[in-house]
Amino acid sequence: MTKTVLDLVVNGESRSFAVEGHRSLLDALREEAGLTGTKKGCDVGDCGACTVILDGKPINACMILAVEAQGAQITTIEGLQASPDDLHPLQQAFMEHGASQCGFCTPGILIMAKHLLESNPLPTDEEIRFGLSGNICRCTGYTKIFDAIRTAGKRMAETGMALPATKVEA
């Protein structure tokens, strides 16, 4: 089968690898790029376990062909932290709040929460619910996830990792 050389910027690093035209971005990231943190859940775009940020927007990596991402900038769960000793505020807050149990959904939820908090570091529960609406967790019941996201948002706002929250007046 013919392969296409895919050139991407993944987690800030230029990467090139050959993929078959029918391969999903999820499979290419996991198998060709070796980035197995992004999980394969339902493989039909329903669960959100495979969420990555593609050119600034969260997507289900199982729902896009790898060749469609040619030249894109992608952030996976591996790109969330600077180093093992320098956790992202979301990772730290998830640990503190016990916001994951089996952990299978956690990479997708963390990526989606990162996207939410970078533009809205102090979201309401309704905004968090809407922001995570494509991500399913079968274990936690979401309370601890929401608590962790609120904690991380406050920290991100304090450290300048997110835009300052603004109120729109009528």
Rank of each mutant, 00 (worst) to 15 (best):
T2I: 07
V5I: 14
D7Q: 14
D7T: 12
L8G: 03
V10H: 02
N11R: 07
S16W: 03
V19H: 02
E20C: 03
G21W: 00
L25A: 07
L25V: 05
A28P: 02
E31R: 13
A33M: 12
A33I: 06
G37E: 11
K39M: 06
C42Q: 08
V44A: 11
G48R: 05
C50K: 04
T51K: 02
V52E: 04
L54S: 02
D55E: 03
G56V: 07
N60I: 00
A61D: 07
C62E: 06
M63S: 15
L65V: 00
A66M: 05
E68N: 13
T75N: 04
T76N: 10
T76Y: 10
E78P: 02
E78H: 10
L80N: 11
S83I: 03
D86C: 09
P89K: 06
L90N: 07
L90V: 03
Q91I: 10
Q91A: 09
Q91K: 06
Q92T: 14
M95F: 12
H97V: 00
Q101D: 03
C102K: 13
T106H: 05
P107M: 10
L110H: 03
I111W: 09
M112A: 15
A113L: 08
A113F: 04
N120G: 00
N120I: 02
P121D: 08
L122R: 15
T124F: 00
E126K: 12
I128W: 04
R129L: 09
R129P: 07
F130E: 15
G131W: 11
L132T: 08
L132Y: 04
G134C: 11
N135I: 11
I136K: 12
C139H: 10
T140S: 15
G141I: 07
G141M: 07
K144E: 10
F146S: 07
D147Q: 13
D147P: 00
D147F: 00
D147N: 12
I149C: 05
R155I: 06
T159H: 11
T159G: 07
T159Y: 00
G160L: 11
M161A: 14
A162D: 01
A162H: 03
P164Q: 12
V168C: 04
A170E: 15
